Computed example of a mutant assay.
Amino acid sequence: MAMTMNGEIQLAASREAVWAKLNDAAVLKVCIPGCEELERIDDQGFRAVAKMKVGPVSARFKGRVTLTDLDPPSSYNIVGEGEGGVAGFAKGSARVNLLERDDGTLVTYQVDAQIGGKLAQLGQRLVNGTAKKLADEFFANFARAL
């Protein structure tokens, strides 16, 4: 099942500060819902383990996240994939842009993702709703971390 999502959030911090936090594994670990492990493995990648629940399906996803097309402190692409055992898999990419504003930084994102397995059987509406909730939760946590 394919899905797309986009959004934006205004943060009361400089673009450089937002960029630094978006690349800090310790900050990201506490901001990502369900994240159990997040380890930087090289300059452009992380290894992650996260426990997720979508409707009646709960799984621990293990995967890798790679940062591409880095343009500090303006933008990058996040490309990731994870395996959740019998629950299925998820893979996708997100384009993240940081735009200077008088009162801080506007972060915009556009996500394209694919899921398969039991997760894909839950239906588009439930999966999209959960994805939006997780994105909102991440950015709320991230705003507090700034």
Rank of each mutant, 00 (worst) to 15 (best):
V65L: 12
S74K: 07
K53G: 15
D43W: 13
A135I: 05
L146N: 02
A2V: 10
Q10D: 13
G85N: 12
N97A: 02
N77C: 08
N23A: 00
E16V: 02
L38Y: 04
G92F: 13
A50E: 10
L99P: 02
R15E: 05
G104M: 00
T130W: 04
F61W: 06
E83C: 00
A25T: 11
T130P: 05
D71P: 01
R15V: 00
R60K: 15
G45Y: 07
A120E: 00
V86C: 00
R95H: 14
K133Y: 02
V86F: 00
A143D: 11
A131H: 05
L119N: 06
R47N: 09
A135D: 05
G34T: 07
V57N: 08
L67T: 10
L122C: 04
M5H: 10
K132L: 02
F61N: 01
G123N: 00
I32G: 08
N97T: 02
G63R: 05
G116Q: 11
N6M: 08
N141S: 14
F89V: 13
D43S: 11
P73E: 08
Q114L: 12
V54D: 10
G85E: 12
L67G: 08
G85Q: 09
A13P: 12
I115E: 04
G104C: 00
F89T: 15
K29C: 04
S93H: 11
L28K: 15
E36V: 06
A59Y: 12
G92Q: 15
Q124W: 00
F139D: 06
P56M: 09
E39M: 14
